[in-house]
Computed example of a mutant assay.
Amino acid sequence: MLSKLDRALFFQEQALTLRAARQQVLAGNIANADTPHYKARDFVFATALQRALSNRGSEAVRLATTSPRHLAGSGDVAPTAMLYRQPGQASADGNTVEMDVERSQLAENSIFYEAGLTFLSGQLRTLSSALQGQ
């Protein structure tokens, strides 16, 4: 039963996780708008979602150990390949953050995140009413 619920909600879970990760990347770009030589970064959401859905994004990174007393652990991997954003106009200090672009991407991502939450809430309400037999 739980595996069926997990499968039903897997897409939205992955989409919301990637939207949250992208929000952090965009916020990092905005936070570094005045940092000399900072290169704005982003990732292609559709590619990252496709990778996550095909389970290729869940590969764990094995940490190298040089002593038997080291913990094996696993490292966190980025949701997808991070890309550098190409600026429309070069900055004198080498910074590639364009605030208008970052703000619009942040707003767009926020709207899609809220839409995903709304859709997920609807799915959960539907599943809940189906389980209750109403």
Rank of each mutant, 00 (worst) to 15 (best):
L63W: 05
A40R: 02
R62G: 00
T35A: 08
P87M: 07
R56K: 12
N95Y: 03
N32F: 11
H70W: 07
L131T: 07
T80Q: 10
N29C: 09
A92K: 06
S58G: 15
S3T: 13
S104F: 13
V97F: 06
T47L: 06
A78D: 12
T47V: 12
N29W: 09
L127P: 02
K39H: 07
Y84G: 08
S91T: 03
S128T: 11
R51S: 14
F45M: 14
K39R: 15
L124H: 01
L49P: 01
T35N: 01
E108N: 13
S110E: 00
A78I: 10
N95C: 01
P87D: 03
G57W: 07
A92M: 08
K39E: 03
R85P: 05
T66G: 15
A27H: 10
H70V: 00
S58E: 15
R51L: 06
K4M: 03
F11H: 12
M82Q: 02
T17C: 06
I111M: 11
G88R: 15
E13I: 07
A60G: 04
R19P: 09
L117G: 10
D42R: 10
G94F: 01
G88P: 07
R85M: 14
A130I: 05
L71C: 01
T126K: 07
A90S: 10
A46H: 04
G133I: 00
L16P: 11
G133E: 04
E59P: 02
Q24M: 08
G116Y: 05
M82V: 15
A8Q: 00
P36R: 08
Q86R: 14
R51V: 11
Q14V: 05
V61S: 03
Q123R: 14
P68K: 05
T47P: 09
R51G: 05
G57S: 15
E98K: 04
I30W: 08
A81W: 00
L53G: 12
N109L: 12
M99Q: 13
L120V: 01
D93G: 03
G88C: 08
A48T: 10
Q132C: 02
A60N: 01
R103H: 12
Q105Y: 06
Q12H: 15
E102L: 05
V97A: 00
R69Q: 13
R19S: 12
G28T: 05
R62H: 09
A60E: 13
R103N: 10
G94R: 01
A46K: 13
L9M: 14
A90V: 10
I30A: 08
D42V: 09
L131D: 00
S128G: 00
N95E: 03
L124G: 00
L2C: 03
G57P: 06
V101A: 07
T17K: 15
S3E: 14
V101M: 07
L26D: 09
A72I: 04
Y113R: 01
V101F: 11
A60S: 12
R22Q: 09
T126H: 12
Y84K: 08
S54H: 12
A107L: 15
S110V: 00
L9R: 07
S74Y: 10
V61H: 02
M99W: 06
